[in-house]
Design a protein around this nucleic acid. Structure first.
Lengths: 232, 232
DNA sequence: ACCTGAACACCGTTCAAGT
DNA sequence: ACCTGAACACCGTTCAAGT
């Protein structure tokens, strides 16, 4: 009994594989090294096994990433007080924060249409707040998509593929590139851009985020859905 | 003279490499096989050379994809007539059509913040239409981003990674998965979702697209930008 | 200058074989 | 059942060497 032969030292006991263990390890790698490092091979290595072993618990890379995302969505609680607008702001800010912390996941979320239990719960909470605000249920129902899509897309925009990839510098959607392009173009055939360049380039990201959510809520509130109420 | 020695037959003359030729070949592969097949190696093969040769004209894969996107954005002209709303609809529909035809590119566009000349021109056109609609310049300037982001994100959502990948079936954001998840969840702790399930799941994609653009324009029109007009 | 063969350092996924 | 070594079929990018 006592020490089994191969438990000499090192090897921190190598916990048995499990779906949750794989998800946790993936989460950890994503946070510290970014989505693109959270590969099957890298995760397997972190768990001291081979990539093939993961396929017992996870059906493919996409599904694994989706599982991590749903877990993260379940991890933030922002049931602040205040009126429904304040609570909506807090909720969207919380979601946004998660996506900014794991930027690569925002890209996935856009394509994946998260359907895990926590994602659905988030959808329900946003819908509840819009209804509480007195928005017509039809409009609120469609509006949730618009709001969550905006948050996701905004986070995805700010996601550089590799945290410190030499190639990425000046390549990605860093605002600078866009700003330079606008200033350059303003001298040629883009009259409106030239006339309003300062407005186009103005505002902090936080100001724009806040303005956009205001505009979305206003639009959702005021815009009737088409005649056929909700066909299909 | 006449036939040079190595022009026996076959080999359709192998045109010299050029940046434009590389872009065209990439475009063609994207259309016929999807973004994920438009790799350096695959493009090089189509041009009958090795991948290393492409790096003389193109700095990396991302830049190549961005070049194709800007070319496509320049390729559609929808200066229909009618009032500004009709023309805005036509313009966004045209952009949307391109992105739906090359779905993978929509994902790229979100992260890339396209800055090519044609992309900037599109931005200018949308801005012009909003101004024509009498929207305050400050709001219009920020609103363009919101509108283009919506179109791009919507196209990205509907993009399955591989056109006919066995794994993709039931995996991606096909509406069915979301619908199933909603119906399942509706029995548990998601009261609002249950109460308004039909509204949430209702509407055709086209109806939702139209409604969303209406809501966006309404919100942009009605929402004042923050006190500091356009700092920075 | 332009082009390229070959290499480096990776991927996801499958499958026969082991325990 | 669960796990895995090894293989298959790919990637992007670099670089020394050729023309």
């Amino acid at each position: 009994m006592g020490d089994s032969p191969r438990s000499r030292r090192e090897r921190p006991a190598k916990p048995a594989l499990s779906r949750q263990g794989i998800i946790d390890a993936t989460n950890e790698i994503m946070r510290s090294e970014g989505l693109e490092k959270a590969t099957m091979r890298r995760v397997a290595q972190a768990l001291d096994t081979g990539p093939a072993s993961l396929y017992v618990y996870v059906s493919n890379t996409t599904e694994l990433h989706a599982a991590v995302l749903d877990e993260l969505i379940g991890s933030f609680h922002s049931d602040g007080d205040g009126d429904w607008v304040a609570r909506l702001d807090a909720l969207l800010a919380g979601y946004s924060e998660v996506l900014f912390t794991y930027p690569g996941l925002a890209r996935s979320a856009l394509v994946l249409r998260p359907t895990g239990p926590n994602s659905i719960a988030l959808f329900d909470r946003v819908l509840g707040l819009l209804l509480e605000g007195g928005i017509a249920p039809d409009r609120a129902a469609w509006g949730v998509d618009l709001l969550l899509q905006f948050v996701t897309a905004t986070a995805a925009e700010h996601s550089a593929p590799a945290p410190s990839d030499a190639v990425a510098r000046g390549q990605q959607g860093d605002p600078e590139r866009f700003e330079t392009a606008v200033r350059d173009a303003a001298t040629t055939g883009t009259p409106h851009l030239r006339a309003h360049m300062d407005a186009v380039l103005g505002g902090t990201p936080a100001q724009r985020f806040m303005w956009a959510t205001r505009a979305l809520v206003a639009g959702i509130t005021a815009t009737p859905i088409p005649a056929e109420p909700a066909n299909r």
